[in-house]
């Protein structure tokens, strides 16, 4: 293990508040001597320490667990959601840039109508909450459950459900999509619950309510581009979108709803 360092040029989106227009600021001096072993967020920590030293406002960005599971972090890095390694921003390490000979890095917040910028690189993802609140659950109150093993579930279905359930709600799929669509996010939850016997009772209602909410809060439609899945740190596949579309048609017919698939 060596401590090879890199000198970077960062172009960072700075925006004082949701009401300001914002713009790129270039940092060179603050981004010198970056160790290749740093994570991307540690690199930003170092830049921020230098900014504070110079009495300048540090760059605001969301982050929490820094181990790739909480879904709080997320940046557009050189135009790619979470950067070039198909992982979360916190798990992206600077050696990836070193290996690819990249020293110029542009950092932006997620860009989507439904994710307004709050400050600098921080966005408001409350629209995701509203989609889950519209039906992303099984209506079972505490205490009313039967014995856990009273309901066998084929391993294949449980595993497939787990693939969808592994979504961390980071929003990279929306940020990567030219239509800012939330189809992958929404379908991952619908697929997770719809693949399990517990989720059948509310299956039709769920898909109608969640898809309606998704449209209502300002996400775009899906045009099968696949960027969402290509950047998804949990590698959730497009088949979840296909499955959701099938469920939507089924539910629309069953419920006589005029919702377009």
């Amino acid at each position: 293990m060596s401590h090879d360092t890199m000198d970077l040029t960062l172009h960072v989106w700075r925006q004082k508040s949701s009401k300001d227009s914002g713009g790129f600021v270039t940092y060179v001096e603050e981004a010198r001597g970056i160790s290749e072993h740093m994570s991307f967020l540690e690199m930003l920590d170092v830049v921020n320490e230098k900014l504070i030293e110079k009495n300048e406002d540090p760059i605001a960005f969301d982050h929490d667990c820094r181990e790739g599971i909480c879904g709080m972090c997320g940046l557009m890095i050189n135009g790619i959601a979470h950067g070039p390694d198909q992982t979360t921003t916190c798990q992206l390490h600077m050696r990836v840039f070193k290996e690819q000979g990249i020293t110029d890095i542009t950092i932006e917040p997620w860009r989507a109508k439904a994710f307004p910028v709050i400050k600098d690189l921080v966005v408001d993802r409350n629209a995701f909450e509203m989609i889950i609140q519209a039906g992303g659950y099984i209506s079972v109150s505490t205490g009313s459950a039967p014995d856990a093993n009273s309901l066998p579930i084929p391993k294949e279905n449980a595993d497939k459900a787990m693939d969808g359930a592994s979504c961390i709600g980071c929003g990279a799929c929306v940020a990567a999509c030219p239509n800012a669509s939330a189809m992958l996010f929404t379908s991952a939850k619908i697929g997770h619950l719809g693949l399990l016997p517990q989720g059948q009772v509310e299956r039709d209602d769920r898909v109608l309510r969640m898809v309606n909410k998704m449209d209502e809060v300002g996400f775009g439609g899906c045009t099968n581009i696949g960027e969402c899945s290509a950047v998804c740190p949990k590698e959730i596949g497009l088949e979840f979108i296909a499955r959701m579309n099938r469920d939507l048609i089924r539910a629309s017919l069953a419920k006589g709803d005029s919702k377009k698939p």
Partner: peptide, 19 residues
């Protein structure tokens, strides 16, 4: 465990379908 399974928590299962 009962509560979580009812909520749809996808615990690991065996081929027979049990937990």
């Amino acid at each position: 465990i009962d509560q979580c399974v009812a909520q749809g928590v996808p615990f690991a299962r065996e081929y027979g379908g049990l937990l």
